[in-house]
Each structure stands twice: as C-alpha cells, then as structure tokens.
C-alpha cells in the first residue's frame, strides 16, 4: 500500500513544530491483546508515536477485547493500535471488532501489528481492520498510517458536526 499523500505534500509548508502540534491533537491507544508477553514491538511503536507528537496511551500486556474497547472509549482515542505475537490474532481481532461494534465505537480505526502470516491479512482486513503491519514495517510507515487514519476520523466527525 502507498503511503498517504496528504502528509508528504503538506510537509513542505509545515514546520516540525507545527507538525508535532497538529499530531498532538490525536490520541492513540497501543494495546497488547491476548496473553502473550512480547511487548518490545508495542513499546517501540508507542514511543515512536509519542516522539512523532501523538498523545499515546499504552495498555500494558494481557488485555481482553472488552478491556481494549473500554479503554478506547474512556480515553476517547482516534486510533487503536493492537500488537499480537501469540498467533492468536484471528480469534482476538474478530472478538475485538465485534465488541467495538457492540459498543458503537466501530468508528475508531483499528490497526494491527505482530507475527501475522500473509494469508491472514485479507481475512483481517475483511473483519474491518484498517491496516496490518507485517514484521519489518518501518516506524515511519506506522506513524504516517496512524496519522492518516486519525485525520480521516476527525474529518468525518467534522462533517457529521460531532467535533
């Protein structure tokens, strides 16, 4: 998938400080769903998003779908980033997407990273996951994707007169 155009074209007219400020309006939840303890990736991504200017909430490990949904709503986040390295992503993501819908929070875009085999990517996207980051994805790509999804969400809210 190509990187979003909006950020790169704007980058020319925007100072680094302005960019940090703009991103600072967006809030991201980084969540470890399931019971695996591999938190290296989640922490690195959380840190990269924070350094890029976003407000970041990290859940810590061993979160249930219910807990992630509750945290996303309570913190009023713009994007949910999930990290799973246990291989149980199909099961947990299906449940997370269902719970988000039940809670009426399926307007929050969800992205996923971890040890995800390629054949699982399509079914995950069909579930409504907006983007799957495979092993080796750059932080830059993650930051840009999260930014684009957050922007889109805010834009939709504005159009609906919610913002």
């Amino acid at each position: 998938m190509s990187s979003p155009q909006s950020t790169s074209s704007r980058a020319k007219s925007e100072s680094p400080l302005e960019r940090l400020e703009r991103r600072g309006r967006y809030k991201v939840l980084v969540a470890k769903l399931g019971i695996d303890g591999h938190d290296r990736g989640a922490k690195v991504v959380a840190r990269a998003l924070k350094d890029a200017g976003f407000e970041v909430v990290y859940t810590g490990i061993r979160q249930t779908p219910e807990q992630v949904v509750a945290a996303a709503i309570q913190e009023d986040v713009d994007v949910i980033g999930v990290s799973i390295l246990s291989g149980a992503h199909m099961h947990h993501m299906k449940k997370l997407m269902e719970k988000l819908k039940e809670a009426g929070a399926d307007d929050i875009p969800v992205v996923l990273g971890g040890t995800i085999p390629i054949p699982d990517v399509e079914p995950l996207l069909k579930m409504g996951v907006r983007k799957v980051f495979l092993p080796g994805t750059s932080l830059k790509e993650i930051v840009e994707t999260v930014e684009k999804l957050a922007e889109e969400k805010r834009k939709r809210e504005q159009e609906l007169g919610l913002a």
């Binding site: 399931g34 019971i35 695996d36 061993r62 249930t64 246990s86 291989g87 149980a88 199909m90 099961h91 947990h92 449940k95």
Partner: peptide, 22 residues
C-alpha cells in the same frame, strides 16, 4: 502454549483462542 506459561487451564476464559498455538 501461553495458557500453560501463565498457569491457566484451557477452559479459562483468558485461554480462549490461545490453546496449543505457540
């Protein structure tokens, strides 16, 4: 597997979807 690693049985709700994978 993860349920065994953290000491829960396969029918524990936290084990759902994780049994036998890793």
């Amino acid at each position: 597997d993860y349920p065994t690693l953290i000491g829960i049985d396969p029918d524990d709700p936290m084990a759902e979807g994780e049994v036998g994978i890793v």
